[in-house]
């Protein structure tokens, strides 16, 4: 793919991925065919900041995990009042990383 398109994609979407993953994504994007651009540019990624806000406000109900698609863990959090409050606090700090990993999984379907 054209380097200009790839740079544009990276610039507008870098906050959705871990910093160490961005170089890999750039290399893959340059290598793949141009026909995949339509799919990749319209992909729906989850904003780590939004999930963090949800986690702080409604983390005890497991809503953040449900939003990420981890239904099983969400139910676990819901049934235990957010893991007796401990899991809620742990997730305030780990949910952004989890979101970025989810985004990486999503884009990987199109990259390979």
């Amino acid at each position: 793919m054209e380097a200009q398109k790839v740079e544009m994609f990276i610039m507008s979407n870098s906050k959705f991925f871990e910093s160490h993953q961005i170089n890999g994504i750039r290399e893959r994007l340059i290598a793949i065919d141009d026909s995949k651009w339509a799919m990749i540019s319209t992909i729906q990624l989850k904003d780590p900041t939004t999930i963090l806000i949800v986690s702080i406000l409604a983390g005890s109900l497991g809503i953040d995990r449900f939003m990420l698609g981890d239904t099983g863990l969400g139910i676990g959090k819901l049934l235990t009042c957010g893991g007796l409050g401990i899991w809620t606090i742990v997730d305030w700090f780990s949910i952004q990383k989890a979101t970025r990993e989810k985004n990486m999984q999503k884009i990987q379907q199109f990259l390979y």
Partner: peptide, 12 residues
């Protein structure tokens, strides 16, 4: 230990 109950007095 419930956060919601502790802060809002409403049970979760």
């Amino acid at each position: 230990v419930c956060f919601i109950k502790h802060f809002t007095n409403i049970p979760c």
